[in-house]
Design a protein around this nucleic acid. Structure first.
Lengths: 147, 147
DNA sequence: GACCGTTGTATCACCTAACTATATTTCGGC
DNA sequence: GCCGAAATATAGTTAGGTGATACAACGGTC
């Protein structure tokens, strides 16, 4: 096996097509990808600086300012002071924010699980066998988290 | 095995998290998901009515009008007449549109293949084994296509 | 201990891309 | 030939992104 390139690329292409399809066919108008990811980060790692969040989520600081403003307006997060640095803003997830995140995860997983039922038992087994690996891949990313 | 729910949901959740991560960590500013998917649909299924495209892509008709206008402006698609119905607009992909689609696929697959290198050989094998199943799942969707 | 460059956030002007509601043109049945 | 329905376009709103810039607070240097 000294020709990994083609097979690797084909696998990657299939995964990419699947990812796009999954996102689009379970599209959730309630929370955008960035919004959901940001809430998930706050849930996983706790309160953080606005600018740190921006870096983690791969958006600019003004974008994160606007996003946090929307989250605050909707009661999903709150701005707080950093006692050690009066310039900084600490963003905290509210209980309502956690609820929304849980609801979204349940909703999306349920929808996608329904789609998985279309697979043959063999294919479903293959996907289940790979889900751990995909999950690990998702979490090896040094910068970004999941939804 | 009469308790499929938990395992299925866990698999679905892992897939969903992976999908969101894949989309975000290979984010492509050149073509949005909808734009790419629309071009792919035109490439796969040929010229179509604007409103049919809107239904297929799961966006409203005004959104598709705007998208086609952008595609036309960028030379990726063209509006044409339907000889049997003068109200209708037939959208056709140009050669430039096909080129852009090919380039995007290559670019994204390459990027994602690089990320797959982070996996252990065992995990990578599992993912490769599942890629066919995921690909079939992507294509069983009666409404939507891939990217 | 005042100065000054750096850092953290906000604001501004701008763009893309989605939505709903509505206008306009054409089709097709009666 | 009329009139409702269908196909597209337009207008107005919102979310979400950008770079440039303003401003306040921090922290090191002399």
């Amino acid at each position: 096996m000294t020709a990994p390139t083609d097979a690797r690329l084909a696998t990657a292409a299939a995964l990419d097509a699947f990812a796009a399809w999954a996102i689009r066919s379970t599209a959730d108008r309630e929370l955008s990808l960035t919004t959901a990811s940001t809430i998930a980060t706050l849930d996983r790692d706790g309160p953080q600086r606005l600018s740190d969040l921006a870096v983690r989520e791969g958006v600019t600081q003004p974008s994160m300012t606007a996003l946090v403003t929307r989250l605050e307006r909707d009661g999903l997060a709150a701005r707080g002071d950093d006692p050690t640095d009066r310039r900084a803003v600490i963003v905290t997830l509210t209980e309502a924010g956690r609820d929304v995140l849980r609801a979204r995860r349940t909703r999306r997983a349920t929808r996608l699980a329904g789609l998985l039922d279309r697979l043959t038992p063999e294919d479903r087994a293959a996907v289940e066998a790979a889900s751990g690996a995909l999950s690990r891949l998702t979490h090896t990313d040094p910068s970004r988290g999941e939804s």
